[in-house]
Nucleic acid binder design. Structure first.
Lengths: 342, 342
DNA sequence: GTTCTGCATGTAATCGATTACACAGCCCCC
DNA sequence: GGGGGCTGTGTAATCGATTACATGCAGAAC
């Protein structure tokens, strides 16, 4: 085996600077409580020894790991991977590491055991995907208590800090945009319904249709799970229906892409024969053919906000009282996949 | 503040089972060294108290965090996010957590300080992106010694375990495929050149051209960094050149997508006017218009292999001797973005 | 009956950093 | 010149799990 050179400890630094370990610790965390001269000797000794703090020892003593856990339904999804990007970046700025859990599918008790009771992580960022409100309650409860910030499609009932999107209202605006273009026959690819909760993008779609006194035809409502595959499946089902809609609102961009490419194989061209609006504005949306009209979600902003909220809570900097809820606005990005009905 | 109920420690379990903490520890890690009866009392006590091991204490004592660090150039890139997905999954199966570092841009010494000298992570998965061979040497050296598995475009000179792709040979095959379709005027969008190292996909392209006695025209060689933006830039540069190539080999799919969509705006249709082959086979490649011909990289397999290799090294299960190198094969996936020259 | 062997369990040291408390030295004031 | 206050530093306990070593006890061997 390789002989690993011993990593220097705080004792080694103390010996080098001819002070006690306590003083070294103070220089590192409360420099103002140490005299100028000593402070300089210690700083010098730290440099000479190449000392780095041992996080395991620090965590044990302080009961804080300076690490957060992010639980995502699917890292492979470009929406989430962009959020993760921002989270990792923001956490690093504030001196925190990020552990990743993927496809945890509602097994909140395992997260609790593996990461929190075992004190590997101090707080949790929880994204959509299989955690129903009951489990959320467990996490937020005093005895399984985990500092927590969520970002969900639905507005969670449990009393937790959250960064949310204006999903319902954005879905209304997306649908209203199609209606404004003259479309009357409009379908919808539904996003996953995690909980018993109503799906806000579906509700928004229905609201806009109702307000315009348009019929929501059940055969033009397609189930989806945010994957391209379900967009493809929606296209196949659509082609079998008695009549095609002239426009479709897809609950995310990936399903819209699957839909458009599959319809094209059957000779149905977007936007010539059918207008499609997506949701998210993932990176490829602007380069797809046709360039996708979509509701943009500020992914990076979401990532930074959830991270800052969580770390504020961890460091006691969050305002006391009711947990903070932030609601962000989605923007309509008009490109080429939608057009006015002739 | 919320009154957090005290998390039970090994002492609490010991008290409950009327044994010493040492015995509880033995039941948990070496059950065969404890008598049947005691073992059962302890197991029962663990269940009753809801005990979970404190990883910070365990890490401190054992000098092992059961955590690995993955350093990626860009999580937002779908190629890497799919690899990350597999890594997180495989690591979880073997009881390891995964910390993420992103866009570390060659700052290997910061990784070393923040994660290894401070014993937050036991091993490192290092992917392409700015770590040049010199820094790699530092990490692999006995005194900065970090258990390490890399996955790079280039074959690293330093003596480290690696999971590599047949980039050079795959680039040759991609180019040869275009040549086989009758193309003579072929351009290339070059991937990022991290190091002083030669870029294997570029070399493969040049080799194939040379073998077919075709000229590599410098004005058809475009610099890129794997982002869609540089694909767009390549298209703009290409449109300014004196003559268009009839085919392009792009070092990845995202740049190919940027290229195709930008050329289309100028009336240059793929594959009618120009054939394009990509690299990676990211998820959207099969749904793009035109569906992308590409060299598929087994992203999930890469993720699982690097993770298993690293954990084998950490647990001393890796065969001694020279570090293991695995080379995986890319497959040509023929779709619609390439066609025979009329 | 004494000594030996081996198994099961307990005792106590250890990993490295933090911090309450103690104390030494200094200045100031009456 | 003695008490009070203040500053700077050291001592030692602590966080929770692991493990070398010690010990106690049962059964075997003589």
């Amino acid at each position: 085996m390789v002989t690993t050179r011993k990593v220097p400890t705080i004792q080694d630094v103390a010996r080098q600077a001819k002070v006690s370990a306590a003083t070294v610790s103070r220089v590192l965390s409360n420099p103002e409580r140490v005299s100028e001269a000593t402070r300089e000797r210690v700083t010098q000794a730290v440099r000479e020894t190449g000392y780095t703090i041992n996080q395991a020892a620090r965590s044990l003593r302080l009961r804080a790991a300076r690490t957060i856990l992010i639980a995502l339904p699917d890292i492979g999804n470009p929406f989430y991977s962009n959020v993760l990007d921002a989270v990792v970046d923001e956490a690093a700025l504030r001196g925190y590491g990020v552990l990743v859990a993927n496809r945890f599918a509602g097994d909140a008790s395992r997260l609790l055991n593996d990461y929190f009771l075992s004190s590997r992580a101090d707080g949790l960022l929880l994204f959509d995907g299989g955690v129903d409100t009951a489990l959320l309650q467990v996490l937020a409860m005093p005895d399984g208590h985990v500092p927590l910030v969520v970002s969900f499609d639905e507005v969670p009932k449990a009393d937790v800090a959250a960064v949310l999107m204006d999903n319902l209202e954005a879905a209304e605006r997306a649908t209203a945009y199609l209606i404004g273009l003259g479309h009357r026959k409009i379908g919808h690819i539904i996003g996953p319904s995690r909980n018993a909760e109503p799906n806000p993008r579906l509700i928004g779609f229905q609201n806009a249709m109702r307000r315009a006194k348009l019929e929501v035809r059940p055969e033009w409502l397609f189930p989806g799970d945010y994957s391209m595959e379900t967009g493809i499946a929606a296209a196949q089902a659509m082609l079998k229906s008695s009549e095609l809609p002239t426009a479709v609102f897809s609950a995310n961009d990936e399903m819209a892409i699957g839909l458009i490419s599959t319809l094209r194989d059957a000779g149905v061209e977007c936007p010539r024969d059918i207008s499609v609006i997506g949701f998210d504005d993932i990176t490829v949306a602007s380069q797809f053919y046709p360039r996708l009209t979509t509701m943009r979600q500020p992914r990076e902003q979401i990532g930074r906000l959830v991270t800052d909220s969580l770390i504020d809570i961890l460091e006691g900097a969050a305002a006391p009282g009711a947990p903070r809820r932030i609601i962000l606005r989605s923007d309509l990005i008009i490109r080429e996949s939608t057009r006015a009905l002739p």
